[in-house]
């Protein structure tokens, strides 16, 4: 019994790891640049598609970890291009414009994906299969999942170290607290913003790449990811990486156990949780933005 529960628990942490990567990217972009990146789900989706192609194109299994990195970085570059090309014109405009612009961008990216990769789902499960399984409490568990959890953990720690222990990280945190003040103090915001989009988009692309091997890359996965990330943020608050972590874990666990015990309303569970949190704690757990009208 305990062994089965542990399996589900690990699944939950696996989902949480992926969610954390997506959501921390979203949170970073919002905290520092003040932009709610509506196109983030698309970045995740593109990451998955690129990974699908690259994995199939990699002859040597030893190089596979690099395909993930490359996929993530390619998405990161797309993020910077969007930022420098479009987003930088609307920083000073009201929130509506940002939402509209990014909504348009997400449409473009969605169709871009369909045009380049085709309408059929793509899969490349080699990394998942080749990793095999390890025994946990007497039951086999995919080693791939454990690796993803560890990678996500490492990235989380690195992110924390970067933000809190490096000079650049401190600049970034200063920007997130007060944008105008920071530029008045001479911090060069025209470097910081593209960099944040690079990091945020890379995280988004990475999460898509990592989720690919056990699943498939398909059109529409962007909307699902965006909504889930949104639910995480609702719980953890927009603008808090710590909140993103806790929210991801909560949603991941709920999802892992929900699929097993109550499959009929699996999709509804996410929405119910979101509605419940919104009603009970409108500010999320750690949110820095007050959102009640």
């Amino acid at each position: 019994m305990l062994d089965i529960i542990t399996t589900y628990f690990l699944n939950g942490i696996f989902f949480a790891s992926i969610l954390f990567l997506i959501t921390s990217g979203l949170t970073l972009i919002f905290s520092v640049a003040g932009i709610v990146n509506f196109a983030h789900g698309c970045l995740y989706m593109i990451g998955a598609y690129i990974a699908a192609i690259l994995i199939k194109a990699t002859p040597n299994p030893m190089l596979l970890p690099f395909t993930f990195i490359v996929s993530a970085l390619l998405v990161g570059i797309i993020g910077v291009v969007i930022e420098r090309g479009l987003i930088k014109w609307i920083y000073k405009r009201p929130v509506d414009y940002q939402l509209l612009l990014l909504f348009g961008v997400s449409l473009i990216l969605q169709d871009f994906t369909r045009i380049i990769f085709g309408p059929q789902p793509l899969s490349s499960s080699e990394p998942f299969i080749y990793s095999g399984t390890i025994e946990i409490l007497g039951r086999p568990y995919p080693l791939y999942n454990i690796i993803v959890i560890i990678v996500s953990f490492i990235i989380g720690i690195s992110l924390w170290l970067f933000l809190y222990k490096t000079k650049l990280g401190k600049y970034i945190r200063a920007c997130s607290l007060d944008r105008e003040m920071s530029s008045a103090l001479g911090i060069n915001t025209s470097y910081i913003f593209p960099m944040i989009f690079l990091i945020g988009a890379t995280l988004g692309g990475l999460s898509g790449a990592l989720i690919l091997p056990p699943t498939v890359a398909m059109l529409g996965m962007d909307a699902d990811a965006l909504i889930e990330a949104f639910v995480v943020i609702t719980i953890g608050g927009l603008g808090s990486i710590k909140g993103a972590l806790i929210g991801s874990i909560i949603i991941g666990i709920i999802r892992a156990f929900g699929i097993v015990y109550i499959p009929e309303i699996e999709l509804a569970i996410i929405y119910l949780v979101m509605a419940a949190v919104l009603i009970v704690r409108p500010r999320g757990l750690f949110g820095k933005e007050y959102r009640v009208a």
Partner: peptide, 19 residues
């Protein structure tokens, strides 16, 4: 067949140029 792409581009264009 690129209608969504065009729609998205138009939304972007309008947001930037013709609010």
């Amino acid at each position: 067949i690129y209608w969504p792409f065009i729609l998205g581009s138009l939304i972007v264009a309008f947001t930037l140029l013709f609010p």
